[in-house]
C-alpha cells in the first residue's frame, strides 16, 4: 500500500471526468454504489450493464485500463472471504457425497464479489481523476461540517510527514539490529508508537501557534469557488440515472 503518498493516486489528465467538479463526481459515485447495492442479485444482466457503464467511463477518463485493474486488487481479501461462504452457509446444498456447496452461500458469494468489486471500481475511477484536495473541497460543497473537512485537510497534509517520521524511526531501530518475532518483544515498537504520538501532538501544538501568529481567528478560510455549473450536474447524473433505470427494470423483472 502506497500509504504515505495519499495524494498520488490522481492520474493527471484533462478528460471530461477530470474536469467535472468534485462535488458532482462524489455525489454521482455514492448514488451509483447505493443503486448497485440495492439491485437484486439474481439479475445478472443488470451487473453486466453496470460493468459496461464503468468500462465506458474508464475510456472517457483516459486512465490506463491496466492501472485500473491493478488498483482493483485491493478487493482480493474480500473475494477470498466470499469464496469461503458456500462451504459454510446452511440451507439447501448442491453436490454429492463428500462435497457440498450451499446454494444460499453461492448467491451470497456472488453478491459480495459483484457489488464489492463494482464499489471498488467506482472509487478507483473517482480517486484516479480527482486530487485529494479536490475531494475534500467537494465534501465541503456537499455540506460536510466545516470542522470535519478542516480536520481531514490537516490529516491528509500531515499523513506523509508522520509516516515519514515513523519510517525514519523504523530505519533507526533496524540499523541497531532490531528484528522482533514475538508479541512479547513489542516494547521497542511500542516506544516508537508512543514517541510518535508525543511528537505528533507537539507538532499539532506548534502548527496551532504558527497559525495564530499568522492571524488565525478560529475559523478556517472558506475556499472561494462558486457552485458547480448545471452542465456538470447533468453530466454527472448520467451514470446514476442510467443505473437507476437498470435497477428498476431489474426489480420489475425480478418480481
Amino acid at each position: 500500500m502506497a500509504g504515505a503518498h495519499a495524494s498520488s493516486l490522481l492520474v493527471p489528465g484533462d478528460s471530461r471526468l477530470h474536469r467535472l467538479r468534485p462535488q458532482c463526481k462524489i455525489a454521482a459515485a455514492v448514488a451509483f454504489i447505493f443503486i448497485v447495492v440495492a439491485t437484486p442479485r439474481e439479475q445478472f444482466w443488470a451487473f453486466g450493464a453496470y460493468v459496461a457503464g464503468l468500462v465506458l467511463i474508464t475510456g472517457i477518463s483516459g486512465l490506463p485500463p491496466r492501472l485500473v485493474l491493478r488498483r482493483l486488487t485491493v478487493d482480493l481479501p474480500f473475494l477470498a472471504f466470499a469464496l469461503f461462504l458456500p462451504f459454510f452457509a446452511g440451507g439447501e446444498q448442491v453436490g454429492d457425497g463428500w462435497w457440498s456447496l450451499s446454494i444460499d452461500g453461492l448467491w451470497a458469494s456472488w453478491n459480495i464479489v459483484a457489488k464489492g468489486t463494482l464499489g471498488v471500481a467506482t472509487s478507483v475511477l473517482l480517486t484516479g481523476t480527482t486530487s485529494l484536495a479536490d475531494l475534500i473541497r467537494g465534501m465541503e460543497r456537499l455540506h460536510a461540517p466545516a470542522a470535519f473537512t478542516a480536520i481531514t485537510t490537516f490529516m491528509v497534509r500531515y499523513a506523509e510527514v508522520i509516516t515519514g517520521e515513523m519510517q525514519r524511526m523504523k530505519v533507526a531501530r533496524e540499523s541497531r539490529g532490531h528484528d522482533p518475532r514475538w508479541l512479547w518483544q513489542i516494547r521497542a515498537i511500542a516506544h516508537t508508537a508512543g514517541t510518535l504520538f508525543v511528537r505528533s501532538y507537539e507538532r499539532g501544538e506548534r502548527v496551532h501557534l504558527a497559525m495564530l501568529s499568522r492571524g488565525f481567528d478560529g475559523a478556517m478560510p472558506r475556499m472561494v469557488e462558486g457552485g458547480a455549473p448545471r452542465s456538470d450536474w447533468t453530466t454527472a447524473a448520467i451514470l446514476p440515472a442510467t443505473a437507476l433505470a437498470v435497477s428498476l427494470a431489474a426489480w420489475m423483472v425480478h418480481t
Binding site: G3, A150, I151, Y158, T163, L196, G204, E205, G218
Partner: peptide
Amino acid sequence: DRLAPMAGLVAAFIFALQLLNFPV
C-alpha cells in the same frame, strides 16, 4: 480553536500507526 490542527495531527498519527507492523 486548536481543534483542526490537533485533531488533524492525531488522525495522521492513527493513520501512520495502522501502517506500523507489530510482531505477533
